[in-house]
Nucleic acid binder design. Structure first.
Lengths: 264, 264
DNA sequence: CGCAACCTTGATCTTAATCAATCGTAGTGG
DNA sequence: CCACTACGATTGATTAAGATCAAGGTTGCG
């Protein structure tokens, strides 16, 4: 297996990879005996056993578009992407952000075209899993099948969190909660944290489009949080300074903050 | 198999079942050779092969609550339920509605407590699938495993639709889109449609809590749609009168209306 | 009959959107 | 190295969609 991994790994040679995001060794290393890395190892196992290729997606480029029919599912190896939908008049809703280890491109059944688009935020790289191999994974009843189901469930819980943010929280609560969730995901995903701050390549417009707000309002709200000393943002980095106060604002019991939504 | 099904079916005897919703024969009959019923048959297969019991949930009662730890997953056999989350100050976000055939109670991994609650809208009945049997299903690599993954994916797409409604559509667009989606789901789920109208047990407050609106605003918006002759609502029923106009309002190409979001 | 949910409607208020500059910063080419 | 450009962040003024508050009005049911 290690051989297979290295085989895939070696293919990266030709492409200009390694953005500042998703650390070189953090990404998808089979960090075998780590509990925390277990789930990612699961996804990694799928990449190792079923990926037929990888694809580099430069920042700003589309991985796939709504309505497109494709044979593939993708797993993020490096970089950040987001899945989104655009209404006829240009309004955009970001459905979720995909960090290394995320599965991207779900449809309800194999023949369905994509119901949304995916675009890279930073330079990114994804592994390509053909859908017929996904079926194969499931039919095999292997550990990977379980991983796939759990990944889907986790994505669903994430969507439910965002639903609550947008539907029933104020802009301030919503943004606070969002930052806490992202902080947690970034930590899980990888990444050295230089001086405690984390890589955070989202623009205020990204945040707004994820939370149903305008970038202007995100800016104002974020400014307040910053001036109150709860967070530090800017220059593509995020640092949560006062996690208790931020959790309070998010309407999350601070003890939950560590394991936000228990979506461990 | 037919025997097993009937066995389960026969257990319904003692409980006061059969609400006006979810028709007696529409529900979960193994309508073997129908294309449309294929997916439901899938879920039905899971019930047949893996359910250890069924549970009656009277209207207004809770099936499970956020934070609760449980060994079970549920599949709706009859009636309507919804999954929701309540913030400390009482604000409620409905995450989705569960009609017959829906899988209810997902968590990201088996040991996690519920991240939301579930409550019955009408009298309802669910099949109980122990989580260890879910794992078993996956490991078996059977058709049921595929069904389970597809159900999760479909739930995810539904959440993405709602996300777009709440985040980026106006109340009118959002409600129009919601009604179109529900119409489609109700038709799929079962149900004789007396005189063209469908059973629709949701209060305006349910709709509001699903779409991030107040019941007052839902009322006003619905009144307008009604007075413009687009829909008929009330007394627990729904009838979409002018599907083209409603689709237009929802911002969906009317040709898509039939197979909304292609989430076939 | 009388309560309890729901639904309706009106008046007023707030949050966040919209419109409109301005500013900073990072690249780019000269 | 420096003007030039572009995109994102800021800030202010104004507007609007939807919330909130407050009564009634229906409907259904014990």
């Amino acid at each position: 297996m290690a051989t297979a991994r290295i085989d895939i790994e070696s293919r990266t040679g030709p492409v200009p990879l390694r953005t500042p995001y998703g650390s070189p060794q953090g990404g998808l290393r089979p960090n075998a005996s780590s509990d925390v890395a277990e789930k990612k190892n699961g996804v990694l196992g799928i990449v190792r056993d079923y990926a037929i290729d990888r694809r580099f997606v430069p920042a700003g480029a589309e991985l796939f578009a709504e309505g497109e029919v494709s044979e593939n599912l993708y797993i993020v190896l490096d970089g950040w992407l987001f899945q989104h939908r655009i209404l006829e008049d240009g309004r955009r809703q970001i459905l979720d952000f995909a960090l290394p280890g995320a599965v991207v491109g779900y449809r309800s059944h194999p023949e369905a075209p994509f119901a949304f688009s995916a675009e890279a935020i930073t330079n990114a790289e994804v592994a390509i899993i053909p859908l017929n191999r996904v079926t194969e994974i499931i039919r095999s009843g292997s550990e990977s099948a379980l991983t796939l189901l759990e990944a889907a469930n986790e994505a669903l819980l994430g969507a439910f969190d965002t639903l609550t943010d947008i539907g029933r929280r104020t802009a301030r609560e919503s943004i606070a909660h969002f930052l806490l969730r992202m902080d947690r995901r970034i930590r899980r995903s990888a990444s050295a944290n230089d001086q405690g701050s984390l890589p955070f390549p989202l623009s205020q417009e990204h945040i707004g489009d994820a939370l149903g707000l305008t970038s202007v309002h995100v800016c104002r709200t974020l400014s307040k949080l910053r001036s109150e000393g709860l967070v530090e943002t800017g220059r593509g980095r995020l640092r949560i300074v006062d996690i208790d106060a931020l959790s309070e604002d998010a309407g999350v019991a601070s003890c939950d903050a560590g394991d936000l939504r228990l979506a461990s």
